[in-house]
Simulated scan of single mutants.
Amino acid sequence: MPHIAHGPRIAVVGGGIGGLAVAGFLRRAGLTAGVHEQASVFAEVGAGLVAAPNAVRLLRRLGVLERFLRRAVALDWGWELRRWADGSVLSVERLTGVCERLYGERTYVVHRADLLDALRSAVPDEWIRLGARCTSVDETARGGVLLGFADGSAEEADVVIGADGVHSVVRGALTEPAPPRYSGVCAFRTLVPAAAAPEFARRPAHTIWLGPGRHFVHYPVGGGRAVNVVAFAPAGDYTDESWSATAGVEEFRAEFAGWDPRVTDLIAAGGTPGRWALLDREPLRRWSRGGITLLGDAAHPMFPFFAQGAAQAVEDAAVLARCLADAPDDPEQALKRYESARLARTTRLQQVSHARRDVNHLPDGPEQRARDATFADADPLVGNGWIYGYDPEKALA
């Protein structure tokens, strides 16, 4: 693994958003790392995501914002909440100008692959090892960490960063394995080519339709070339958490039978939808020990109802790199400082994301009407300033 004379040997397990972001921030801080990604190629997996000002601020700092903006779509129209049955607008929040004034950056939507492409541009090719599936993590007698891989190879490092997602192998070396709880909710996702999407779905808006037990989200991605659709519905006995699992278009459409035809027409215009179960995991009370730590979904998987999963991984990356750069000769202390700086914030976001499910899925009735009435008065952009105004440099200072 390449490393500078005075820096620790750092191994990142996982080449997703968090893994590439931390490698990029480490490079910016003058440290080096090896990134071990189990996939043999960087493929266009996943779907759309939101990049709020707290994430965009860090993409700018990393020097990849220009590349990110090639395919990102600015939410000029803003956030929009609609009623399931007839599409009546419950609230609209215009973001243009306001986001910049409050937080110094705009809010964007983007395909996950396009964000990965931007982050990868900050990491030298020679740092990345593809087809490297980590199978074991063991602390050595000398205070290092030995990684074992499926191909029989091994590598020793001073610092191991587990950025390997919800099924993290690295997490298993730190915590007692606890099976996730069944949430009872599953997600569907599909991409609709812009040419097949109705005009209202192509607007630069993040639209959420709220209904009993379900909600339905759409926004443009890929520079406006496609519309990302993601929807949440009761899972029944479905428990597959794989991103590669699929469902039938008619199955997806049937879940939203009786909804505004614009919803079911958009479903029909998409390709074969992906489908996965949302599994529930308790926040960890700690995620570092010795020279091993976690980042992103490996540390704090959260329901996607605040659209902060990717942003929190990028925040983790910026904080962790800064902590390691500040104490390159004492990585164990650096990891403790990192965990201390991040634990309360990510736990709070896990909790509010969890609670949002129940708010979004109220059955029609007095509670739902009271909820809808609050939307007209609320200003989530201001009310969630603790999310969007966060700056790792200030948090660490």
Rank of each mutant, 00 (worst) to 15 (best):
A299W: 12
Y338G: 02
L320P: 03
A341S: 09
R285Y: 00
E241Y: 10
R342G: 07
E282Y: 00
G248M: 02
A268T: 03
T346P: 02
C323T: 06
Y338S: 06
A327R: 14
E250M: 06
R342E: 03
A254S: 11
S288T: 15
Q333P: 03
E251N: 09
K336S: 15
L294Y: 07
C323K: 08
E339F: 11
P261V: 14
Y238F: 15
T246N: 12
L343C: 00
Q333G: 14
D265M: 03
R286K: 09
D265H: 10
V263R: 08
L266H: 05
D240Y: 07
Y338H: 09
D297P: 13
D326E: 15
L295M: 02
P283D: 06
F306N: 13
D297Y: 13
P328A: 00
L294Q: 10
R281I: 09
D265E: 15
K336P: 00
L320C: 09
D280T: 13
V249L: 03
D316W: 11
G236K: 07
G274T: 06
H300A: 09
A321F: 00
E241G: 14
D265G: 15
M302W: 00
A317S: 14
A247F: 04
E250G: 15
D297M: 12
E315T: 12
I292P: 06
A310V: 11
F252T: 04
Q312R: 04
D237C: 03
R345E: 05
H300K: 02
Y238E: 03
D330A: 13
L324W: 00
F252M: 04
A318N: 04
P328R: 03
A327S: 14
G290R: 02
E255Q: 14
L324R: 08
V314E: 09
P283E: 01
D280I: 04
G248D: 13
A268M: 02
E255R: 15
R348I: 02
L343D: 00
V319P: 03
T264C: 14
G291P: 10
A318Y: 04
A327E: 13
G236F: 01
L335A: 12
P283H: 06
A310F: 09
I292R: 11
I267W: 12
R262H: 12
L343M: 02
A307C: 07
D240H: 10
G296Q: 14
A307L: 12
